[in-house]
Simulated assay, not measured.
Amino acid sequence: MQLATLLSQTSANLIQYTNNTFINRYLNSFNWNQILTDLTSKLVTIVFLSVLFLIIAKVGKSIIYHVFHHRDVKQQKKATNLATDPGRKRNKTIYSLLENAYNYIILFFWLYSILSVMGIPVGTLIAGAGIFSLAIGLGAQGFVSDIVSGFFILSERQIEVGEHVKINGIDGFVAAVGLRTTQVRSGTGTLNFIPNRNISIISNLSRGDLTSLVDIRITPDAPIKKIESIMKEVNQEKAGQDKAVIGEPLIFGTVYLSDGSLAIESCITCKSGTEDDVQADYLQAYLTAIQTAGIELPLSPQTVQPPKKPTTPASTPAATPFKTK
């Protein structure tokens, strides 16, 4: 009798969720007020931490910017040539790297705090050496490889922000150097993100003097000696006018180009970063002088078959009228 009375009182206190008595008792076994309180508290804490880390990120990035901006202003006052000043480029590179690393650090601690608030034992998971850790390690191989490759690129000073480079067939200027990727902006304005682990060969076009090759295409019956004489006269007239040109331009003579056409080639040594302007300037001067002399040049490349290799023994020299390129 007492058991029946107790069961009836318990059933009266239950909230009716479904028509199934077992499910109703199971759901009522939870302290929903406590669960709601804990959930609200955790949501408020997560929002608070997110806002806090956002403020820390903004303040930290602002401090980094002002420190390096102050150094950049000093470099501008000291440097005579801002475009090629190595100290200023190094300053931009370190700033780009620190900003990138700071973002990763803030993101890591934010995720760590959120998981801790949710009650996930992050420290135990990190210290564990089970299948989960192995999977994370295998998935992070590429990330670790990017960081190691980026470290050696920066420590050896292979590239700096603002330098003209060729990486994996991409020709452009270094926009940023990060822990995972290197950003190169090509001539069309496209920003290319290159993973550091994929960088095998870096061609830095901003270190040392470069050579500009100017090719004047000709026909086989063109007055070669006269054209070379005109080009030499142009070199003499322009001598000393362009400070970017180093030494005297050299006339290589007649060469075969890769498309099978003939050309008279001139080699001009110039300062890094000026090769395109020097090439365009001398090409225009050569063409103008040749046209003024009344010499006609081909409107399109004319393919000329190179001389066949001699079938005589190697000891017998066989002269060829043109150089090959």
Rank of each mutant, 00 (worst) to 15 (best):
I290S: 08
P306C: 11
S315C: 10
T188P: 04
Y26F: 12
L205I: 04
F108C: 06
P249K: 09
G119S: 00
A4F: 12
R217L: 03
G187N: 13
I55H: 04
E160A: 12
Y282P: 07
H164A: 04
T181Q: 00
N103K: 11
V234M: 00
L179E: 00
V278H: 01
T93L: 02
I194D: 09
P86L: 02
C267T: 01
K309G: 08
E156V: 07
L250R: 15
I167T: 12
I63A: 15
R25D: 07
Q302F: 06
S96K: 00
A289F: 09
S62Y: 15
F48L: 13
L107E: 09
L82T: 00
S133Q: 14
E265Q: 08
Q34D: 01
S186F: 10
A314Y: 09
E156A: 12
K271Y: 00
F132H: 08
G208R: 15
S50R: 04
D221T: 07
T316A: 11
L125N: 05
N204D: 11
Q9Y: 04
I170Y: 05
G139Q: 10
I216M: 02
T312H: 03
L138T: 05
F108R: 05
I120Q: 06
W32P: 01
Q279L: 01
A176K: 11
G294I: 04
S62C: 14
I15C: 13
Q2V: 07
I147E: 01
G247M: 10
R90Y: 00
R185E: 14
K77F: 03
D277Q: 11
G123A: 12
T21I: 13
P313F: 08
I153R: 03
G130K: 05
A4N: 10
L287Q: 09
I114T: 01
Q141E: 06
I153N: 04
M231Q: 03
F48H: 12
V67R: 05
P310L: 12
V47S: 09
Q305Y: 12
N103V: 09
Q2K: 08
R197W: 05
E160I: 05
F109A: 12
T219E: 07
T324R: 13
G178K: 02
E265C: 04
P317L: 08
D259E: 14
G294R: 05
S266E: 00
V73A: 09
S133D: 09
S203I: 15
L125W: 03
L39I: 05
I202M: 10
I251Y: 10
E237S: 09
I120S: 06
F151G: 03
L210F: 11
T190W: 13
L107C: 14
N168W: 09
E248P: 10
S116D: 00
L115G: 06
V44W: 14
D221A: 07
S272Q: 01
